[in-house]
Design a protein around this nucleic acid. Structure first.
Lengths: 220, 220
DNA sequence: ACAAAAGTGTTACTTATACACCCATGA
DNA sequence: TCATGGGTGTATAAGTAACACTTTTGT
């Protein structure tokens, strides 16, 4: 009545104005692309296991992480019973410092629209994570976890358009976000662009957390 | 590297205009009140285990259930490593047919405000479930799972006031709910009350599900 | 006749939506 | 000078919030 417990991580990144996903090439059967993850050790918490796997398999640390769902169907791994606690994470492009491919490890970013065949029920896990991210974006400022520290307003808008799957009005979007009081101008401007340079903004996380404490609800 | 996996269930009921919670008296150490639940068997899915435990420990079946969160801290059970996948459920008062207390089993409803000392991290689990329920109530019509099939508008309002923790305007609430088109009059009225008899309403789940399919979003 | 809850509309206010022109910069 | 994206305000529509009196029924 004991079984193996694993963690699997759906790691989202945003680059080239598209959502990307980190996958690992499995070296043992089933040989296929899969989510980063692995078994939880006897003496480590779930979050510790997640951080360890991300470090070992992807060379990524300090990531926004959240538990997604636990997948426990009897036959999800045809070889033996494995319960998988799935997490999803959001990383900024600066953190995209993947480990070099080695004999035993290949990690790669894929565009979300063009994923390869996946091992086990990992496609289901990804679907759920994507849905969750889309929902979350409307009531928590998760978008900033995917952008570099300094960004153009148009970057932010494009990200939200990508996540929500619909176009947003430029003026209304700017008004809305600025009225929330959680992004601020850095004072810097875009350099060397063949058009009017845009201002760079920054997410004020500290201020956001204070506001949340005093009962503020982010809502798009 | 294998471990025990359990399910624990936070079962909410609504009675006497208050939220209640089902707890089980443990007969073995630690002797204390605890959430219904138990170990997942090798050959059963998580949901199957939840249904089995609810049947065995509380005599309850056919319940609205949703996975809540997985609790996996190394020391959450001081005796051995146990990962617990927590679910929460909502039941209608009609279903309140608890098993009789026996030598080996005692199940009891508690008012949410006056819970006894609880085993393990079950107080944390309950807190999270309560938060989740309060959040959910604003964007999904879960309230109807807690009410009898036929209910007064004032019942519905009181339930929502309980869940949200604030008072609602009677006229605005009625307008809002009726405008959604998911509750309908049964034609029946309250009987033998010392005041004007109220109309009994019913939740039209079928219609709600059709509306969701065509892109409708419940929102309070 | 009184107590207790049911039923019912209108107005003010706040928030969301729709929409178009000028600006700065590098090529 | 042209192409490209940046920056800005106003009017209308929709939705939310506030609010009080009359009705029905049993005691």
């Amino acid at each position: 009545m004991t079984m193996r417990v694993a963690v699997d991580i759906v790691l989202f990144g945003y680059a080239e104005q598209r959502l990307h996903l980190l996958l690992i090439r499995r070296k043992y059967a089933p040989i296929a692309w899969a989510l980063p993850g692995g078994f939880v050790l006897e003496d480590e918490d779930l979050e510790t296991a997640v951080a360890r796997e991300l470090r070992e398999e992807a060379g990524v640390a300090n990531v926004y992480l959240e538990q997604l769902y636990t997948f426990g169907a009897v036959a999800r791994d045809p070889r033996r019973r494995v319960i998988s606690v799935a997490y999803y994470g959001l990383v900024k492009p600066e953190q995209f410092t993947l480990l070099a491919t080695t004999d035993s490890l290949e990690a790669k970013w894929f565009r979300l629209e063009t994923l390869p065949e996946l091992a086990f029920d990992h496609a289901d896990i990804i679907n759920m994570a994507h849905q969750r991210l889309r929902a979350k974006v409307t009531y928590q400022p998760v978008g900033f976890e995917l952008l570099p520290d300094k960004f153009l307003f148009s970057d932010l808008q494009r990200l939200y358009e990508t996540l929500l799957g619909r176009e947003l009005d430029r003026r209304n979007f700017r008004k809305k976000i600025l009225s929330l009081g959680i992004v601020e101008e850095t004072g810097e401007k875009q350099q060397n662009v063949a058009h009017r340079a845009g201002s760079l903004f920054r997410f004020n996380k500290q201020r956001y957390e204070e506001m949340v404490k005093s009962g503020f609800y982010f809502e798009l």
